[in-house]
Design a protein around this nucleic acid. Structure first.
Lengths: 230, 230
DNA sequence: GCAAAAGTGTTTCCACTACACCCATGA
DNA sequence: TCATGGGTGTAGTGGAAACACTTTTGC
């Protein structure tokens, strides 16, 4: 028989909040919703929900993201817990924050059906409820850090993309301009992209070659202890 | 009036577990205790406790560390949340893991009064309860990462230390040998140490100069956006 | 005088940076 | 023919790594 020895301890509500990053060829954005319950109903907020008895936090994050956006198979990573005593005025709530990376273009139809969900450029994020502003800041910092040692950028792009798109994405994440030639040779040196025979003709008359992330090659390199730095 | 709209949500126990790193001139170690309550009484465990209503997680971590070791003013950092459904067989418990860095020598007297607390070399850690092994692994990974971009190593050394000690510490953390000359010139280039006129005579006939971390200089450099990399 | 740790510089190499021109095409 | 974005190479610089000998002094 297993005794419950913890009966005298306080229990708390454990929330999961998601910072959903997207990229639309130009700008890094996050997805926000108008909160439809009290407190702070009608204000802009991250999407979130509560952990349930039968799931772990990763599962909760996936469930919440899926429930509110219809999206599956999204890259998510837990990055920090926010626990200020009065962060939620309604009740003591601890929130585990996750960030998610999605390709806006591929999933836009699914998302836009949601009432009151809207993409905001990072430069242009409104005041959010509770400590959600802090969460966004911190998610951004973590994303910048991660971008430098793991090729997560690809999660934000369509399966096929041009070098130009990739560069613009990294410029958005790192918030600085990069040199075209240097960027390309760095990326090529990683040797994790497949150059396709197709071209993207939407951006120029000449057309730009499309590339594709090669997950297998990447996995092999990770196994070999290859040290990614972008 | 603020309504509690969350009444239907599940509440959970939120634990804090601490991976306490120490360094003793030779080896990187962690502090473990023999658990004195059920379940798993008598097995080796990280120190931990539960979050209380009136505190945030950082405060809880500080309280728990202080309560079990008598130590104050210790460097601590939250690094991950563990939430597997059955991680604690007694009851659903989510654990927020912190790592702490302490100077064994300076605090050893205080710590050793604790029943059943013991330092273990990292190479030599026994099987721990629950998922504490995973926590230790992950803490170690985080420590290695942090050591590279923030001079946290000094938290593990006495106030005054020799270059040799500092090097051995970094060798322990990074788990690889470093070149003496390269290490010293890298450290010197950071320009955050004060060389003292004193020498440590315990390790050699010649004696080795003692150094001291210069917090002010460091803070100034951080403000100036200096990019630490060790 | 020798063992044991402290201290000290130089060279090599590679990765990062800066930088400018031609190409292909549709209009 | 020209405007637009696509594509390509090189030289210079700075930090990281490799590397060996002399100094001090207690025994």
């Amino acid at each position: 028989m297993v005794l419950n020895k913890y009966v005298s301890e306080d229990k708390v509500l454990l929330a999961v909040d998601c910072i959903i990053f997207g990229f639309d060829e130009e700008d890094l954005k996050i997805l926000l919703v108008k909160r439809n319950f009290e407190p702070e109903m009608g204000k802009w907020s991250l999407i979130g929900g509560f952990l349930r008895e039968e799931e772990n936090l990763d599962q909760a994050a996936i469930r919440i993201l899926h429930h509110l956006t219809g999206l599956h198979g999204i890259y998510m990573e837990q990055f920090y817990v926010f626990s200020k005593v009065d962060r939620d005025p309604a009740e003591r709530t601890i929130s585990v924050a996750y960030y998610a990376l999605i390709d806006i273009a591929a999933h836009d139809k699914k998302i836009t059906h949601i009432d009151k969900a809207q993409w905001f450029s990072l430069k242009d994020v409104p005041k959010l409820i509770f400590d959600h502003d802090t969460m966004v800041e911190r998610a951004m910092a973590r994303l910048q850090q991660r971008a430098k040692d793991k090729p997560i950028g690809f999660e934000l792009l369509p399966e096929k993309f041009t070098m130009r798109q990739l560069q613009k994405l990294y410029e958005s994440i790192l918030d600085k301009n990069l040199d075209k030639r240097n960027f390309i040779s760095k990326v090529n040196s990683l040797d994790i992209l497949q150059k396709l025979d197709e071209k993207d003709m939407t951006m120029s008359k000449k057309g730009a070659f499309l590339y594709q992330f090669d997950q297998e090659k990447y996995n092999r390199k990770v196994d070999e202890g290859f040290n990614f730095k972008l």
